[in-house]
Measured scan of single mutants.
Amino acid sequence: GKMTGIVKWFNADKGFAFITPDDGSKDVFVHFSAIQNDGYKSLDEGQKVSFTIESGAKGPAAGNVTSL
């Protein structure tokens, strides 16, 4: 299901971020390909987002990341 959280930090050079979920679970890795914005895919620290949890090769990662 959809979860919500806050972007903890975003590394534009490497194209990934971490989200701190609102439910208090541990921070979730985000690859820029999961960001659903049109055009430039970036996130801002402190931004509120919704996302799903996908199981990636290196463990859980956020999918369908959308700005709220």
Rank of each mutant, 00 (worst) to 15 (best):
A61M: 12
G15A: 08
V30L: 08
D44L: 13
D38E: 11
H31Q: 14
H31P: 15
V49D: 00
S50I: 12
D44S: 13
V65F: 02
F16G: 07
K14F: 09
S67L: 08
G39D: 11
K58H: 15
F18P: 00
I53L: 11
T20E: 08
N37Y: 13
D23K: 03
D44Y: 14
L43F: 11
S50H: 07
V49M: 01
G56H: 11
S55A: 10
V30H: 01
K14D: 05
Q36P: 07
A17Y: 07
G59I: 10
G1W: 08
A61P: 11
L68W: 01
Y40F: 10
K41F: 12
S50N: 07
K48A: 10
G39L: 08
K2T: 13
S67I: 15
S67R: 01
G39V: 07
D13Y: 05
I35F: 13
A12I: 13
Y40N: 11
P21R: 01
V30F: 13
A62C: 15
G15K: 13
G59L: 13
V49R: 00
F18M: 09
M3V: 09
F18S: 07
G59D: 14
S50D: 06
A62H: 08
A57Y: 14
I53T: 08
D13H: 06
V49F: 02
N11I: 05
M3F: 07
K48T: 07
G5A: 01
S67E: 14
F18W: 14
D27R: 03
T4F: 07
F16D: 01
K2A: 11
K48D: 02
V7K: 00
S25H: 04
K14Y: 07
S67G: 12
G5T: 01
S67V: 12
K14R: 08
G56I: 13
V28A: 02
D44H: 11
I6V: 13
K8G: 02
V7Q: 00
A34Q: 12
T52L: 13
G15M: 12
S42E: 10
K14A: 02
A62D: 14
T66Y: 00
E45I: 11
K14I: 04
S55F: 05
Q47S: 11
E54C: 14
S33Y: 07
F10D: 01
G24Y: 02
V65I: 10
E45Y: 12
D13W: 06
V49H: 01
G63A: 13
D13F: 06
D38K: 04
T4Q: 06
Q36N: 11
F29A: 08
A12H: 11
W9H: 06
A57F: 14
Q36L: 12
K26F: 05
V49G: 00
I53F: 10
K58N: 15
A57I: 15
D44K: 13
Q36G: 08
K41L: 13
F51I: 04
V7Y: 00
Y40C: 15
G5R: 00
F51H: 00
K8S: 06
P21N: 02
Q47K: 07
V28T: 04
G63K: 03
L68Y: 02
A12W: 08
G24D: 03
S50K: 06
N11V: 05
G15W: 06
T20P: 00
W9E: 04
Y40S: 09
L68V: 14
K41R: 08
Q47W: 06
S25I: 03
I53C: 15
G46S: 03
D27P: 07
V49N: 00
G15H: 12
H31F: 14
G39E: 08
G63D: 12
D27E: 08
P21H: 01
K2Y: 12
S55M: 12
D22F: 04
T20G: 04
T4P: 01
F32V: 09
W9N: 04
Q47Y: 05
K14G: 04
K26T: 06
A17S: 01
G5M: 01
G56F: 06
G15T: 05
S55D: 15
Q36D: 12
E45H: 10
A17N: 00
I53M: 11
T20C: 11
V7F: 04
Q47M: 14
Q47H: 07
P21W: 03
F18G: 03
G5P: 00
I19A: 00
A57P: 15
V65T: 11
V49I: 08
A12K: 12
F32Q: 06
I35D: 03
K8R: 07
M3W: 05
D27M: 08
G24C: 10
F16E: 07
K41A: 10
K8T: 05
M3L: 09
S42N: 10
F29Y: 13
A12S: 08
A17W: 05
K14C: 15
T52D: 11
L68T: 14
P60Q: 05
T52Y: 06
N11D: 10
G46Q: 02
V28D: 00
I53A: 06
V28K: 04
A12L: 11
A62K: 07
T52S: 08
G56C: 15
D23I: 03
F51Y: 11
L43G: 01
D38N: 07
P60T: 05
N64V: 12
P21Q: 02
D38V: 08
E45Q: 12
S25N: 04
G46W: 04
G5H: 00
S33C: 15
W9G: 03
M3N: 05
M3S: 05
T20K: 10
V30E: 00
F29S: 05
D13K: 06
A62F: 07
F16Y: 14
N11G: 04
W9A: 04
T52C: 14
I6P: 01
L68M: 09
F29N: 02
A12R: 11
Q36C: 14
V49C: 04
G46V: 02
S50F: 09
V28H: 03
I6G: 01
A62R: 03
N64H: 09
N64M: 08
H31K: 14
H31G: 07
P21D: 01
K58W: 14
T4K: 05
A12M: 10
S55P: 11
F29D: 01
T52R: 05
V7D: 01
M3D: 02
G39H: 11
D38W: 07
S67P: 09
L43Q: 01
E54F: 01
P60N: 06
F16K: 01
H31T: 08
L68Q: 15
A61H: 11
N11H: 06
N11E: 04
G63C: 15
M3G: 06
G46T: 02
D38C: 15
W9P: 01
V28N: 00
S67F: 06
F32D: 02
M3Y: 08
S55Y: 05
A61T: 13
T20I: 09
I6M: 06
P21C: 05
I6Q: 03
N64P: 07
V7W: 03
Q36T: 10
F18N: 04
I19S: 00
D44V: 13
A12F: 08
M3K: 07
Q47F: 07
G46R: 02
N37D: 12
F10M: 12
T4V: 05
N37F: 10
G59V: 10
G63L: 09
I19H: 00
D23R: 02
F18Q: 07
N11R: 04
A12D: 05
N11C: 15
K58V: 15
F51E: 00
K2C: 14
S55K: 06
G46I: 02
G15N: 08
N11Q: 05
G56D: 15
